[in-house]
């Protein structure tokens, strides 16, 4: 170890000292010495390496000290609500890792900022969460403003980030929608999805040969229903069966979803609809009186039994206290 220290050239030794000092001071300030040092090291290494695969449209000249990132933009339309999602990730040991706390600017149509009340331009600035995700829900006001259009472009851009290189990514979508209808045939419930798009002339254009997946919404995930590989016919229609053994939610309903996923033209579009569901729910465990329930729900025999014993014993004790008072009174009387 010592030998190695002596072998260092002056310059390297100084830079090492500087890094050590920085790490130390940062560590002290953050009191998170371990993480800080660990993280700092790969970041510095990255800077030395040539930039890896990054955002599709990398505009700014590569600045040293910043890591390359990958920016993804996706668009989801669920019934009438639209949202744009961004995902920012970097490569670490050949694995994709989400980048958190990155500010992403989201533009509509064009990057140029415009004055207020013009829908074109900056929509929002998003900050990614710990997984590198951020979502922007388009407001009703915005939806109304673009009601007469059927093709939209969203541009996401990362500029002047302290840690990462600039990146830009855009997505262009043709508007589509899915409407759901339910049927009952021979006690078999089915759901039918109609997928329609738009163009300049027609507002209700059936979409053919689009692969549609059906789901029922559950607490933490979507339960796939229907056969595999369903796709729309010429009328833009596809049908799936809803299994009878699905449990309804607390309101006696289930939410059925039909979805086209990451379509090249329409992106992700889904239709959601609730249906009254007859299958009764299992009643949630009613907490009666038991040894493991709260104090006020203690089993009756336990409460009665213990109270009985306590009152009995303490009754006698209080009787004996009374005897002490009697002794004191006897001391005061003169007779005897």
């Amino acid at each position: 170890m010592l030998n190695r220290m002596y072998n260092l050239t002056g310059k390297r030794a100084i830079s090492l000292l500087v890094i050590l000092f920085m790490a130390f001071s940062v560590g002290q300030a953050f009191s998170q010495k371990d993480t800080t040092e660990k993280v700092k090291a790969p970041a510095d290494q990255k800077a030395a390496k040539p930039a890896e695969k990054s955002g599709s449209d990398q505009k700014a000249a590569p600045t040293t000290g910043k890591a390359a990132i990958e920016l993804k933009v996706s668009y989801v339309k669920s019934n009438d609500s639209r949202s744009v999602k961004v995902h920012v990730s970097r490569k670490e040991n050949k694995k994709s890792v989400g980048c958190d706390s990155v500010s992403v600017s989201l533009y509509f149509d064009e990057v140029k900022a415009k004055e207020a009340n013009d829908i074109t331009g900056l929509l929002a600035t998003l900050v990614t969460d710990e997984n590198g995700d951020a979502e922007f829900k388009l407001t009703d006001k915005f939806n109304k403003a673009i009601a007469d259009r059927w093709k939209y472009t969203f541009i996401a851009s990362i500029e002047n980030d302290k840690r990462y290189k600039n990146a830009e990514e855009e997505v262009t979508i043709s508007d589509a929608s899915i409407t759901l209808t339910f049927d009952l045939k021979d006690s078999v419930k089915t759901v039918t999805a109609k997928l329609s798009g738009r163009n300049d002339t027609t507002a209700d254009l059936p979409i053919n040969k689009a692969s549609v997946k059906f789901y029922v919404k559950r607490s933490f995930s979507l339960l796939p229903i229907g056969a595999d590989g369903l796709s729309t016919n010429k009328k833009g229609i596809v049908t799936a069966e809803i299994p009878n053994d699905i449990m309804a939610d607390t309101n006696g309903k289930i939410t059925v979803i039909a979805r086209i996923e990451e379509h090249a033209k329409f992106a992700t579009v889904e239709g959601r609809k609730d249906i009254e569901w007859k299958t009764p729910r299992i009643a949630s465990e009613v907490q009666g009186r038991s040894l493991w329930s709260v104090g006020k729900n203690a089993p009756v025999p336990l409460v009665v039994g213990s109270c009985f014993i306590v009152f009995l014993v303490w009754g006698v004790i209080f009787y004996l206290f009374y005897q002490l008072i009697r002794i004191k009174k006897l001391s005061k009387t003169k007779a005897g």
Binding site: D100, N117, L126, V127, A134, T139
Partner: peptide
């Protein structure tokens, strides 16, 4: 003070919330 801010990021998590400039 710093830890408190850190808590906003680490503890509560910065979720992808958006700030609307135009339509909010």
């Amino acid at each position: 003070n710093f830890l408190k801010l850190g808590a906003l990021a680490a503890g509560l998590a910065v979720t992808g919330a958006g700030l609307q400039k135009v339509f909010s």
